[in-house]
Computed example of a mutant assay.
Amino acid sequence: MTEEEVLAEFRASHALLEGHFLLSSGRHSAHYLQCARVLMNPERASRLAIGIAQKLPRDLRKEIQKVISPAMGGLIIGHEVGRALGVDAMFVERPTGTFELRRGFSIEPGDKVLMVEDVVTTGLSSREAIKAIEDAGGKVIAAAALIDRSAGKVDLGVPFYPLIALNFPTYAPEEVPAALAATPAVKPGSRAKP
């Protein structure tokens, strides 16, 4: 899929928002991608997942034994990428603040895993998920995401294959431009307080 095709999917589902947003990473942005909205349509989610799978080198696709995603954001896209690759898809979650496998999910020692996220900005959640997978015995051989918002700067410690990379600027709290700071920040993501 091209960048424009992916953005068309986001626009069609009203998932590309503009305003002043406080991201889960703590950074600020004038743009927000609401992946839950773009993934709520199963056909759209499937198309995007197939696009991610096709971004992976053919040799790598053959090695992947499991797909594991961090809950909540990576859950749907991880499941769909697992379907596209024909492997089981599981997720890690944070019941006590640290990612772990639960719900009867298990990894055989040395299982080759693709970690799949929805959006990567700083990579913190992705690195935490990778650590949890490795602590459980898996070998993360690559990571993938719908969107790389890091401007190509993220280092996950494994090869990283985003469907597209977007360079919407993000700002640390002390770097927010005056025009953006003039508008109250909204926390639109899953970690937002009601």
Rank of each mutant, 00 (worst) to 15 (best):
G110W: 12
E134W: 05
T98K: 15
P70L: 04
V120P: 10
I133W: 01
G157T: 14
G123T: 14
S106F: 04
P95F: 00
A145E: 12
P95D: 00
E134V: 01
A132V: 04
V140W: 00
I76H: 03
S150F: 01
V113Q: 11
V67M: 00
M72T: 15
P70M: 05
T121S: 15
I107Q: 06
R127E: 12
I76Q: 02
Y161M: 05
D148V: 09
L75H: 02
E117K: 11
E128Y: 04
L124A: 12
M115E: 14
V92M: 00
M115V: 15
E93K: 09
D148T: 03
A71I: 04
R149K: 15
I133R: 05
D88G: 15
Y161L: 03
V119Q: 05
L163D: 10
I141Q: 09
V87E: 04
G82N: 08
G82R: 14
V154N: 12
A136H: 08
A145G: 13
G110K: 13
S150A: 05
A132S: 09
P159K: 09
E128P: 13
P95W: 02
R83K: 15
A151F: 03
L163H: 00
R103T: 11
P109K: 13
G123Q: 13
A151D: 14
L101R: 07
R94K: 15
V154M: 04
T98Q: 13
G152W: 08
R83H: 09
L163F: 00
G123N: 12
V154C: 05
S69Y: 01
L114D: 13
V113H: 09
V140A: 03
F99R: 09
D111K: 06
A142C: 09
Y161D: 13
Y161F: 15
G73K: 13
R94G: 04
D111Y: 01
S125E: 11
M115F: 04
V140F: 00
G123L: 02
D111M: 02
V67G: 10
A71L: 08
F160L: 02
R127F: 06
I107S: 05
G86T: 13
A84E: 11
E100R: 15
A132G: 06
A132Q: 06
A145K: 12
S106D: 11
D155R: 14
I133H: 06
G138D: 11
G97P: 06
A142H: 14
F105R: 06
T96L: 00
R83T: 13
G74T: 13
G74W: 07
G110S: 08
F105T: 10
F105S: 07
A143L: 02
L114R: 13
V119W: 00
M115G: 08
L124V: 12
A145F: 05
H79G: 14
E108I: 06
P159A: 01
G137Q: 05
